[in-house]
Computed example of a mutant assay.
Amino acid sequence: MKTLKKTFKIILFTLLSILGFTIIYVLAVLGISKISVNEDVVNPKEGIEIYLLSNGVHTDIVVPVKNDIKNWSETVQFQHTKGQDTTANYLAFGWGDKGFYLNTPTWADLKFSTAFKAASGLSTSAMHCTFYKRMKEGELCKKMTISDIEYRQLVSFIENSFQTSNDSIQKIETDAVYGKTDVFYEAKGSYNLFYTCNTWTNSALKTANQKAALWTVYDKGILCHYE
C-alpha cells in the first residue's frame, strides 16, 4: 500500500511539474514576445531592401541574390536547385530543425520521435534556402530598407549559421525539397523549445538593427512588431 501511494505521489508530482512548466512557458512566450527591441529605429529612404517572410508558422529572412556587398549565388548556387533557374532576384533563408525540414512535409507526417528530438535539442539543424523572382508585400511579407553597414552585419550572421567544410557550405543531398527553387544545407546549432526557426529570424533582425521581439519562438511574436 505504501509503495502504491509513493508511486501515485511521484506520478502526480511529475504531472503537476509538466503542467506548471507548460503554463510558465506559454505565459513567457506570449509576454516576452510583446517586448520590442529597436522599436524606434529609423530606416534610410535609400538602401538595401530585405524582407521578413512568414508562411503562417515559420519565418524567413529574404535578401537580394546579388549586390555590391554580397553575391549569394556564389555560395547558394542556382545549380543546387532542381529548377536551376538563374533569373531569381531574391533569396530566402530559413534556419530550422533538420528532422522537421526533411521528414515532415506536412503536419500529418509528423512523428513523435521527430517532435521530441526537436523540442529537446537532440537533433541537428538545417538551412532552407529558396530563390524568388519577386516579393509581394502583405500581411505575411514585410519589407524594410537597411544601410550597407546593417546589411553587412546581417550577411555575417547568416554566413555564420551555416556549417562549413573547407570554407564551403555543405549541401544536404536529399529529394525532400518543397519545389524547384529551394535547397537545404547543413547548419549550426540545435532547435529546441527556447530557440526555434523564428528565434533565429528574430536574432537576424536584431543583428541588422531592425524591429524585433526581445525573445520569441513563434512567427506572430515577430510580425506583431511590424503591424
Score class of each variant (00 low, 15 high):
K2W: 08
T7I: 15
I18H: 11
G20L: 07
G20F: 13
I24M: 09
I24A: 13
V26P: 00
V26D: 05
L27G: 07
L27A: 12
L27I: 13
S36C: 06
V41K: 13
N43R: 15
P44A: 04
I48G: 02
E49W: 00
N55M: 08
N55L: 12
T59A: 14
V62R: 05
K66D: 12
K70S: 10
K70N: 07
W72K: 04
Q84Y: 03
T86Q: 10
A88K: 08
N89W: 01
Y90H: 13
F93D: 01
G94M: 04
W95Q: 01
L102R: 06
P105G: 11
T114P: 06
T114Q: 08
T114W: 09
F116Y: 14
A118Y: 03
S120I: 12
M127R: 02
H128A: 10
Y132S: 10
R134Q: 10
M135P: 06
L140F: 06
C141Y: 01
K143R: 12
T145G: 03
I146M: 04
I149L: 14
Q153V: 09
S165F: 07
N166D: 15
K171L: 14
I172N: 07
D175M: 13
V177E: 09
V183S: 01
F184E: 03
S190N: 14
N192K: 07
F194A: 05
C197A: 13
T201R: 01
S203L: 11
L205T: 04
K206I: 11
K206V: 05
T207V: 09
Q210H: 03
K211I: 03
A212D: 02
A213C: 05
T216M: 06
D219F: 04
G221W: 00
E227T: 05
E227K: 15
E227S: 11
